[in-house]
Design a protein around this nucleic acid. Sequence first.
DNA 1: CTGAAAGCGCTAACAG
DNA 2: CTGTTAGCGCTTTCAG
Lengths: 327, 327
Amino acid sequence: MTSTDVARETGLSRATVSFVLNDTPNQSIPQATRQRVLEAAARLGYTPYAPARTLRSGRSDLIVCELPDWPQSPTMAEFVDRAGEVLAEAGYTLVTHVHTDRPGGLGRLCAALAPAAVFGMRPFPPQDVEAMRRARVGVILPPPQAGSGDDLGASVWTTGIGRMQAEHLIAKGHTRIACALPDDPRVSDLSAGRAAGAAQACADAGLPAPARSPVPLDIDGAAGVVSAWRASPDAPTAVCAYNDEVALALLAGMRRLGLSAPGDLAVIGADDIPAARFAAPPLTTIALDSGDLGAHLARALLRTLDGEEQDLTLAPHGVHVVERESA
Amino acid sequence: MTSTDVARETGLSRATVSFVLNDTPNQSIPQATRQRVLEAAARLGYTPYAPARTLRSGRSDLIVCELPDWPQSPTMAEFVDRAGEVLAEAGYTLVTHVHTDRPGGLGRLCAALAPAAVFGMRPFPPQDVEAMRRARVGVILPPPQAGSGDDLGASVWTTGIGRMQAEHLIAKGHTRIACALPDDPRVSDLSAGRAAGAAQACADAGLPAPARSPVPLDIDGAAGVVSAWRASPDAPTAVCAYNDEVALALLAGMRRLGLSAPGDLAVIGADDIPAARFAAPPLTTIALDSGDLGAHLARALLRTLDGEEQDLTLAPHGVHVVERESA
DNA sequence: CTGAAAGCGCTAACAG
DNA sequence: CTGTTAGCGCTTTCAG
């Protein structure tokens, strides 16, 4: 099933077949011939062989999206789905790659794929960037040279969410706020960003900067952190959790101590995982529309592929608080 | 940075370069020359261009793994990581594709990649299988013709887990068991499999088959289901939940009704999501070692690629109950 | 309007 | 031991 087969079947040349199959412009081919080719291709189940096409044209229609390996929100599928849809409309094919601590994985993948572009939600390690460059990858998002502060999506994944959490708590009348961070090193830059967003909101409201405490992901450990907070001179009355998991840990720790939210301590999470609504009390959290975000990012990527220089800072699309009972 | 560049740099021919770079057997090339080529390739940062290599050799080193879109366990990354590692050792490169309800996605991906193999955890739709065949995909796992009962991993993802849940409850002395299924149609075949596993365990123990109830993923809905169970003539004393999310929903529903586990009703989940340990009471659940499973599956795939006909039924690798307090 | 021909980067017979 | 050469499937000038 090659284009030669279609040519033989129709009694035309491979060139003509190629013309109609790609409807090449400036090529006046009679409807009859065109029809004949299309029909034969369909009948034979012809599919162009991607490697040959890529070799010839010098450009691949593949785009790689690196997925984070941190605890996945169940909406990751939506993100990929919508991003893939937008890219498909533009003639690209999205493939995903789940991030690994094993170094060089992305680099090897790019060598094997020679994709047109690679994007992800965090900066790539220099080693991988180098490999991508060698693999002729055209566009990399976030751009390797970008500073860590203002790069792709910082506003959405990090500072924007932290800010929104703190603003909600402040609106509820809280003035002493803490930040609960995971002790997982993989997300240290993200958690720092969120805490920074919360700090900004506090500063804007004339409040002191929130204390930052790492919270172990077990009940005893979380209870320990809560006790420490309450024993401190300026005991916080509310806490921004890095995500719903640490929020759930906090709630469980409080329960063990006989405390409850929001009375003893208000808790707000982030991600709106399915378990959030089933917590005791149901967890107030920040949700973001992953699908929207995926589409948004994909469009930004397409613009970059078209050579448009652009501002990569994203407006926090569809980010909103889901108010339940814990804050 | 093509092999021509390396040839020019070393003053050799492209053929010679190719020979040493792929260390082609039956080709006696002096160490000196060999060294010269390797050194030049490294210095120039030469990376073979995959599409050309694939076109020429007729075989790609890509393997596609389709990831489910149902609520992801946080261990999906481990699965992919270990599977990728095993495949990489054999010279293959793993790329992932997140499943979408949008039809034909996998098919289009395969057309764009021409991978050596495709594997996933559920049978592929016939439409995609057809596209894969056209895209020259050599091996498909699970094989399209396999029956739904005994296909790839059924024992691990479905019946095996359900069986283990029921066996745990039976060991605790329960004799009237229910199955709580999600009402999400995307997982209906999986949930049926798990319920079947639970039913087997009950049958083996001489107990009546468990009732199956769909559980809505909200507190009121879950509470309604619990009430209905308790009002029924043979009220169950324990329930196998399809996964931790529905287990959490059940626990929340019980809490609303003033009931608690395991006293009023024992609940066992599946997946051991991070939130499970923070539930009230902490959730007893079934965990499986995703990394092991990934490696196991990858090895099975490699054997199939080597043409070995084989039994695809997997032993439940690393599946075990995590006993907390809810059952 | 259609066909012949060149060539993308790479590999593998086959000569030298 | 190394170089020449053909060709993978496809697109795209350039002639007819």
